[in-house]
Design a protein around this nucleic acid. Structure first.
Lengths: 174, 174
DNA sequence: GCGAAACGAGTTGCGCACAACTCAATCGCG
DNA sequence: CGCGATTGAGTTGTGCGCAACTCGTTTCGC
């Protein structure tokens, strides 16, 4: 019943291929899949690799700071860091200054892994088939989009939270 | 974008903020989070919404075709579709013509949900703060990148698989 | 026809992501 | 000083996402 006329809907229907959301979702998984080929031999997952990137780049840090840079919460980071610790790549120690915070530092093995992962980013760049200049421009646009969406999310959340008091704090499309 | 002095690392170390991979990963999660605010009241998740988009757009289809369009495998789709069926939004029935395939079709409730989700895409576009023209250009660039990376992944996989016979079938960056 | 290979959906196991929660440590304010 | 509020990490539960696998169906070669 009613199998008719559902093909090629004209009107205002959102079409999958025109959605920025799906493009991002799909591209992100495509890049992650390409990284998986490189990371699996090292026993790493992609989010674990991102954590190591931060540590290779900035040295010892805290769980909170990792969460800020990667935009991840403790619910994701805690078990992930425990796995990396179990693999002997980093140490987690309660800070002496503030017992609430946990310091994260690479072990020698974690530091050594940097060499093996040195060429990964270039390989991914090569896989995109783009010039480095174009790739960086695209990266900047995408980063700006992420920042704008996150800011909007925060604004809308705040607006909902204060809906009892204020009528419409932020202009949100209508 | 964080004009801080995070550029401390000189050498060949991959820096998080310069990585296209992290930009995509972060932006995808940011957009998904914004969608979550809209979808949670409807009892939907973001991947479930994508499935409904395909069905709203193209009418009844099969599990395989959904997987092709969304780039998802049965391991992801099967339980997801079961949940949507449990919520009364669609039906899954073995095809009469080929008992291996499963036909997926919206119920009336699933079709009706289209009205409530009609404005979601526009709201996300608004959250990006970009003009529609710029957004579509960005979307096209991102889609092209995804396609290039997926093609490269397939090529490298094939090269590894045939490593026993052929020496180096595909030129892969060096 | 018939047996091997291929195919499509489903299951299992693991690791994210994230909401909601717990709990200890610290801070702020009178 | 004391005590309520806040903060930071961790836990629990749910739903992807994907590899590896199973199982019934179909297709193909002969």
């Amino acid at each position: 019943m009613t199998t008719a006329a559902a093909t090629t809907t004209p009107g205002p229907t959102p079409v999958l291929d025109e959605q920025i959301c799906f493009a991002l979702y799909n591209a992100s998984r495509a890049v992650t899949a390409r990284y998986r080929d490189l990371l699996t031999p090292l026993g790493l997952t992609y989010p674990q690799y991102l954590v190591l990137l931060v540590l290779w780049q900035g040295g010892p840090t805290t769980v909170t700071e990792l969460g800020r840079q990667l935009q991840l919460e403790s619910g994701t980071l805690s078990p992930l860091l425990k796995r990396l610790e179990a693999h002997g790549l980093l140490t987690r120690t309660r800070s002496a200054a503030d017992e609430r915070t946990v310091d994260v530092a690479l072990t020698d093995a974690g530091t050594a892994l940097r060499e093996q992962a040195a060429g990964f980013a270039d390989q991914i760049c090569g896989a995109t088939g783009l010039e480095l200049t174009d790739l960086q421009a695209l990266r900047a646009d995408i980063a700006a989009l992420a920042a704008a969406v996150r800011a909007n999310t925060a604004a809308v959340t705040a607006a909902v939270a204060s809906a009892d008091h204020a009528p419409a704090p932020v202009d949100q499309l209508h």
